[in-house]
Design a protein around this nucleic acid. Structure first.
Lengths: 252, 252
DNA sequence: GCAAAAGTGTTCGGGCTACACCCATGG
DNA sequence: CCATGGGTGTAGCCCGAACACTTTTGC
């Protein structure tokens, strides 16, 4: 049985502050290699797969500080050109500051997901300094390709495989589910952070603009205020907050 | 690589009506073999695993009417005595009326999950006409056995393996997640059903009592009233309802 | 009439939304 | 002074919880 693991690694990037009066803008990113594919790893008998996946992240980025969970196991021969077997995908969230080393053949792509027309259509844009990949994902309910059918209209042109497109789509859906129900948002951030940073994470993942006064109240029970101030911009400094450990939430 | 599939099949049973004035009581059930294990299936290269899992259900129960989704892929050598590899579990929901054949070596066990003390402790009771299996599942947050650690205190006595216990636990959590966010509840029922039947499904899965006046209002948009009446008891007959197809919801 | 479920309506409170408003900062 | 984000308060709205009440049935 041919079986392989791979990793969809999410992170965020802080753009430089162009205007001291404005917030740094964060961007959601994923790590892909030069063929626009995810980092992979081999799975052997008598190994604890989750540990194997973790070890691969550690080897890749030389750090052990990240969040990891199993995303899905893909097993549809139509997804593969050769070696038609299974792929187990793990979803990773990492704070860039914890990355000690960047593999030469890999790059973080900015990823932007626009929800269009209706809830089943998404436009996905991947870009870095060198290239831009755009494609549209359409979910058709009740058809039978892993429960839904995905159409990756621009897949051929962009050299993103259908499976890669589906994994990105599923990864985003999982993030959206988790961010509303668990504390994964904090995995993107430093131990101490400003509320506006947390809000940006929510906005990036959910692709919405939130009203900060309301966001603040909503997440208030999940954070603890410290007495430290961030002073690095031409607006009122923010207090630093930390995650309130009482709000650990697990999920299926 | 040694890899296997298995199935956690959920269904419900209608008890006989003891008192014409009372509702039939439903019970949540799962299918286990004589060793208290789940039905398994083999996975081969070049097969669409979900289809393979479906085919196994069809072969087992001689029907094609059921709900199926991937639950999780288990890969921890500590879970296995021998053949230490991977197990991919699919979760199935079936209406007993659609089962055409019951395999001789398998039985539906009533399953009752009590939430105790706090959200991390569950008492699980499996029973059928011949035996009863009780165990307690404790989830410890932040430890590292598939993200949480499970302690199956009575596993040895009851001959339920640790993996079986974890799959049941995870299956229940998945059902609880799905029932709040999708329309899986309808998979347990006939095409036409009374609101009280639907409510019982919710109560069984969530282990709570719901106020029927409020439940009715909550699920109102998800159902359509027919003009048929159920008259088979000494209380006011109910209209039959059907699922409103506009409320199909998918999930990650 | 009675017990039980079917079904409707009303009240109350908590949480979310929208928005007004003041504060603190560097330029 | 200004623009910008930080932070607080408040009014309105919706949804869910609690519960009262009427209807319908078989016995």
């Amino acid at each position: 049985m041919n079986i392989q693991g791979n990793l969809i690694i999410f992170s965020t990037d802080n753009e430089e502050r162009k205007d001291v009066r404005k917030l740094k803008e964060k961007k959601l990113q994923i790590l892909l290699d030069e063929k626009n594919e995810f980092p992979t790893f081999q799975i052997k008998d008598n190994e604890y797969i989750k540990r194997t996946a973790e070890a691969r992240v550690e080897e890749l980025l030389k750090t052990s500080k990240f969040y990891i969970e199993q995303l899905y196991t893909w097993g549809d021969p139509n997804y593969y050109i050769e070696n038609k077997g299974l792929t187990i995908t793990y979803l990773v969230i990492i704070n860039k500051k914890n990355i000690e080393f960047m593999p030469k053949n890999m790059k973080f792509y900015d990823i932007h997901i626009e929800n269009k027309e209706n809830e089943y259509v998404q436009n996905i844009v991947l870009s870095n300094d060198y290239k831009e990949i755009k494609y549209k994902i359409e979910t058709i309910v009740k058809r039978d390709r892993e429960n839904v059918e995905y159409i990756n209209k621009l897949a051929e042109k962009t050299k993103i495989t259908e499976l890669t497109a589906i994994i990105i789509h599923t990864g985003i859906k999982r993030l959206r589910n988790r961010i509303e129900n668990t504390n994964i948002a904090f995995s993107f951030l430093d131990k101490e952070f400003a509320i506006s940073e947390l809000q940006q994470i929510y906005e990036l993942i959910l692709d919405t603009k939130l009203v900060s006064a309301n966001f603040r109240k909503k997440i208030e029970p999940m954070v603890k205020k410290t007495d430290k101030l961030v002073k690095e911009s031409a607006y009122r400094p923010s207090y630093m907050y930390t995650f309130n450990e009482k709000f650990i939430r697990n999920w299926v």
